[in-house]
Design a protein around this nucleic acid. Sequence first.
RNA 1: CGGGGCAUAGCGCAGUUUGGUAGCGCACUUCGCUUGGGACGAAGGGGUCGUGUGUUCGAAUCACACUGCUCCGACCA
Length: 571
Amino acid sequence: MRATQLYAPTLREFPAEAELISHKLMMKAGLIRKAAGGIYSYLPLGWRTIRKIEKIIREEMDAEGGQEIMMPITQPAELWKESGRWAVYGPEMMKLEDRHGREFALGPTHEEMITSLIRSEVKSYKQLPLMLYQIQNKYRDEIRPRFGLMRSREFIMKDLYSFDKDIDGMNVSYDKMYNAYSRIFTRCGLKFRPVEADNGAIGGGHSHEFTVLAPNGESSIAYCESCNYAASDEKAELKVITAEAEEMKPLEKVSTPNCHTIEMVKDYLQVPIEKTIKAVAFQDDDGRLILAFVRGDHEVNEIKILNAVEGALHLHMAEDSAISAAGGCAGFMSPIGIKDDTAIVVDSTVMEMYNAVAGANEVDVHYINVTPKRDFDAKKIIVTDIRMVKEGDPCPHCGKALKMTRGIEVGQVFTLGNKYSKALNATFLDENGKEKYFEMGCYGIGVGRTAAAAIEQNNDEHGIIWPRAIAPFEVVVVPVNAKNAAQLEYSEKIYEELKAAGIDTILDDRKDRAGVKFNDCDLIGYPIRITISPKTIDENTIEVKIRKTGEVYTFNRDEYKDKVCELLKDL
RNA sequence: CGGGGCAUAGCGCAGUUUGGUAGCGCACUUCGCUUGGGACGAAGGGGUCGUGUGUUCGAAUCACACUGCUCCGACCA
C-alpha cells in the first residue's frame, strides 16, 4: 500500500467529543468515524487492525475444533419470547417491525438463534460435541454509549456456542475455549488476566472474564501476586475476618442524636470503625425488604446479596416507608427486632464481632455491646459473605494481601448448562436412547473493544504504539523527500523487497515535508519506521526506528531484511 | 430515565451578555519557494449559524418547543 492512495484522514487535533485516549486516538489517526451515537464506520487502517484480530481469533477457534458459520442479525421476536428474554432484555434490544407489523430484534447475542438452529438438526449424541462460531455485528441499545468502540451500540463480536451431551463434555469445551482465549490475547500482544466472574442469574456453571489491564478500564478486579487468583470485584470471595474474643458485655441502648451515618456514630461514641455494624436496606422487584449488614469499614456487594437471597433478581434502595413497616428505622438499623418477613443478610465477618455498635431501630438510638452471635436470631438471618473486596483483603486461596486494578473486559467464557436448550426444548438421544437437553457454553470476544483495549494499553504522547500482530501495517518506509526521484526509487525497492519477504509494509510516498510524515507515522503507530534519506543512499544503508522504544538502528542494504524480521519478533 | 454542559465551514473555536453586512486557526484548491519532526508568501473555494414556531423593520444573537451530541449518576459485554 502507498500512503498516497490510502484513505487515512488523520486529524490535527482531537475531536471534542472523545474522552478516552483510545477513542481520541482512533479518531485522530483516522481509524474510525462516527455515524451516530455508539455507531461507527471503520476506515481502512482501523479495519485492517480489526481484520488482523479476527484472523487470530479464527485460527485459534479453528484449532480447537470450532466451525465458522454466519447467522442473521435480524431475529424474529417469537424466538426471544420463547426463551423468555424478550422481556428480560427489553429496552436493551434494538427492535423493528416489518411491513406486516411482525416484530424483529437486531441480535444482541445469538443463544436463541443457534439453539433453534441446532434443535431441529442435531438429534444424536454421535453428532456431539459441536462448536460453532461467528464473527458478527451485534446490537445493544446501550443506555449510554460512550468511549468509541469500547461501549458502542453496534459492535463486532465473535461468539462461539458449544453443545455437549453432558456436563463433563461441556467442561472440556469450556477448557478448550479458556485456553484458546489465553492464546488469542497473548498473540494480540495484550497484558491481560483471566478473572473469575459472577454467573449472575444463570448460576451453576463457571465463568471467566478476560480482562485487559488498563487504568481507565470500566471493570475492577482483585488479584493475588503470590498465587494466581484473580476475580472481578463482584465475584471475589472473601474469608471471614475473626476478631479477638472478648468478654460479652450486656446489650445497652445509648442516645446518638442525629448520628445516621457510620462516620458520625463512630466519632460520637469514640469507637473504632471496626467496632461498628453498618446497615444497607434494599428492596427487590417484588418490593420485599432486604436488609444487609456489614462491618462499618466494609462495603456491601449487591451481587453477593442477590445470590444469597432466593428469588431476588434486582435490588434498589429501599423506601423509608418499607423500612418503618418492617420495624426498622433508617439510619439506625440492626437485625434486632425486625419483623419476620424481611430478608436479613449478615456478612460472616459481622458474626465474629464482640461488643459492637449497631442501630437500635429507634431514631437517635444505637445499641452498644452488640455481640451478633448472641444477639442476632440465628433462625431469622442469612449469614454469608456479602462484602465488596478492597485492596489488602486476604486472598481466598493463599491468604496474602489482594491487590486491586482496573481493566477492560474483552472476552468472557461461560457455561450455560441446559438453560437455553430447556427453554427452547432442544434435545438429542443419548447412548441409551434417552432424550436429553444439550449442555451448552457460550464464549464471546468483543473485537472492536479488543482493538480499543490494545490502544488503551499501548500509547504515548505521540499516538498509538501497535503491537506488531494487530498493527495495520508492520513497517512503514519513509523517503524524507518523496519529490526526490532517487529517494523515491530507493524507497520503492526497499518497500518491494519487504513485501516480497512477507512483511506487511506501507510506503509513505506523500510529497509532504518529513516532519508531517513522521508525526503521522507516530500517530498511526506503525511498529517500525524505515527512513530513507540522501545519507542512507550514499552509505547504502537504511535507518530503522522502533516506535515503541524510540531506538534507531542503521543497517546495511544487503542484510537489513533479516535484521528487520528479527526486530519485529519482539514487537 | 434524573442532573449539568454544548450545537456557528471537514476539524478546533470566537461572535450571543448589549439584535443590524458570517469571523479566526488548521485542513482544502492554485502558484511560488522550502524539504530529517506538523515551514513560508500570494491568490482562492467552502457555512439554510442543529430543527421548528414566535417576538421584531431586522434574529447566529431574544422567547418557547423539539432534536442531536457530551459529562456525572443508576444499568451493562
